[in-house]
């Protein structure tokens, strides 16, 4: 009798047994034994790893590292006691240096650290991309609208799902002491989040002004995410994603139509 090959056993283990393999197993005790042994090994391996989980400390560390960095406040130097009479010149020099630092450090922080609002927008986008926690995975605009009405108090504008554009879900989260609604739109160019907030684009640090067809948009970027914002009524609609500014603007333009 010709027994089953190793590859045939792998197909059986993967649940893709051919008819002749099943027939052979019915007739061959040796192959049945070999299969049972392979299944027992697989089962024992699964059991061995069943209790292997990531620690809470590591999960927290990763969450902190993958979250957008917060603005670091400049630390004031501790006061030092010095004898005024003996060191007045150095005092004056120190005062000058301190004055320079007072001006320079905030400027340095301003120019080198992304605004916290931009970080928070990118964070909402990444949270939505993970589709976990309070994210509502629904594609029906009516369901998303109902969720927004209940948790946000109003219905933000949603794009028409057509031409390869589809809604993926929505989320209502805290944003800079306020509440913000956001939804995910999948397009052929990529997946993006639209965050709806009360703050103006300028207040969020989205300050690069562009004009298209008479409409003013504001653009910025944080880490890998590009951002474009437009003011509609009392709200700013901020499109965030790893796609071009032009494409984000196209999406927002659909909301204005």
């Amino acid at each position: 009798m010709i027994h089953l090959t190793d590859i045939e056993f792998e197909d059986i283990m993967a649940g893709a047994a051919a008819e002749f393999e099943n027939l052979h197993l019915l007739q061959c005790a040796l192959c049945r034994g070999r299969l049972a042994e392979k299944q027992a090994i697989a089962s024992r391996l699964q059991k061995a790893f069943a209790e292997v989980h990531v620690s809470a400390a590591l999960a927290e560390r990763i969450a902190l590292q993958t979250r957008a960095p917060a603005v670091q406040q400049p630390q004031a130097a501790p006061p030092r006691r010095r004898r005024f009479a003996a060191h007045w010149r150095s005092w004056a020099a120190a005062a000058s240096a301190a004055a320079a630092l007072i001006i320079a450090v905030p400027l340095l922080v301003y120019f080198t650290t992304p605004a916290p609002a931009l970080a928070a927008l990118a964070d909402i986008h990444h949270h939505n991309m993970s589709e976990t926690g309070d994210f509502v995975s629904e594609t029906d605009p009516a369901i998303l609208a109902a969720h927004f009405r209940e948790h946000l108090g109003f219905n933000p504008r949603l794009p028409e799902p057509n031409h390869g554009l589809a809604l993926r879900g929505c989320c209502v989260r805290r944003f800079q002491g306020d509440i913000a609604g956001s939804y995910v739109v999948a397009t052929p160019q990529g997946v993006m989040t639209v965050v709806v907030v009360r703050q103006t684009p300028q207040a969020m640090g989205i300050t690069d002004r562009v004009q298209r067809n008479g409409q003013v948009y504001w653009k910025s970027a944080f880490a890998l995410s590009n951002m474009v914002s437009v003011r509609i009524g009392e709200y700013s609609y901020c499109a965030v994603g790893e796609v071009s500014h032009n494409y984000l603007t196209d999406l927002l333009a659909r909301l204005l139509d």
């Binding site: 560390r61 990763i62 976990t132």
Partner: peptide
């Protein structure tokens, strides 16, 4: 975070050490 456990378990299977698995998962 999706798949975090799966990434960690795989890292543990590869390295056989929890500290290395931590490091690999993070990386």
């Amino acid at each position: 975070m999706p798949h975090l456990d799966a990434v960690y378990r795989t890292a543990y299977a590869l390295s056989g050490r929890s500290d290395t698995a931590d490091d690999l998962t993070q990386a």
